[in-house]
């Protein structure tokens, strides 16, 4: 992706052109006017974030990295995946940057960088083969993306989400050691909450929904 002299530190060796391309790409892919280019690096977002401690970079740092054109570092970061969509950063940002929405965009871009080998609308594998050399699989924690994919796999097949199935599949896959601790809760879901262990009934317009989503995916990639 970068064609600069390799002896330079990859973090500082991007051309100016690459910097603005990355920032513009993020801006264009975010609905509405995201103001992502207006960051003054004050750290309100990083200070506000309830899951900030789990992030490898604070959101503020991500904005600086976007500006510096550090594409790989941004797309390998777990920061967008740790976002809980609490919107504290968005309403507090003194520059009105739609930070939560930008995080969604970065998640999209991060997955897209891995897309060639990623199956669509089928139960996702726990890890997918990574052929894009710029993305380092070791740096990337797929739990969050995997959760999203499992969730959506269900929605794309039933039209509605299937909480208990989702939690079951996801936790067996990623948190097998926690299962003993979780058993009482799982039982409670079935007994107390009366949740059904069976998948939900498909919505009637499943075909229609399928067509809409298919068209949306084509529009997304065009």
């Amino acid at each position: 992706m970068t064609d600069v002299v390799s002896v330079l530190d990859p973090h500082t060796s991007h051309t100016k052109r690459e910097d603005s391309i990355l920032l513009r790409e993020v801006s264009l892919r975010t609905p509405g006017e995201s103001h992502v280019d207006m960051c003054i690096q004050c750290g309100t977002c990083g200070g506000s974030c309830p899951s900030g401690s789990a992030m490898d970079h604070t959101p503020r740092a991500i904005f600086a990295m976007l500006r510096a054109g550090m594409r790989d570092d941004v797309l390998n970061s777990n920061t967008p995946w740790m976002c809980v969509s609490c919107y504290f950063c968005t309403v507090r940002c003194p520059q009105n940057i739609h930070i939560t929405d930008v995080m969604y965009t970065l998640k999209n871009m991060s997955l897209e960088a891995r897309k060639p080998t990623m199956p669509v609308a089928s139960p996702p594998p726990t890890a997918w083969g990574l052929k894009n050399s710029s993305i380092d699989p070791k740096k990337y924690n797929p739990t969050a993306a995997d959760f999203s994919k499992t969730f959506i796999w269900m929605v794309e097949n039933f039209g509605r989400s299937f909480e208990i199935g989702l939690a079951g599949v996801h936790n067996v896959r990623h948190f097998i050691t926690r299962l003993p601790n979780m058993t009482p809760m799982a039982i409670g879901m079935l007994t107390k909450k009366g949740m059904s262990p069976l998948p939900p009934k498909r919505i009637k317009g499943m075909d229609q929904l399928g067509k809409i989503l298919q068209r949306a995916k084509e529009l997304e990639s065009s």
Binding site: G43, T44, C45, G46, G47, T58
Partner: peptide, 27 residues
């Protein structure tokens, strides 16, 4: 160096939460 995100009551007084932007960590 960091704009304060919030001030809440706690630990017998007030807790000031901000990102120390020069360190890159929430404090």
């Amino acid at each position: 160096r960091g704009k304060v995100a919030e001030i809440i009551e706690g630990e017998g007084g007030l807790i000031v939460q901000a990102e120390d932007t020069l360190v890159g960590k929430q404090r």
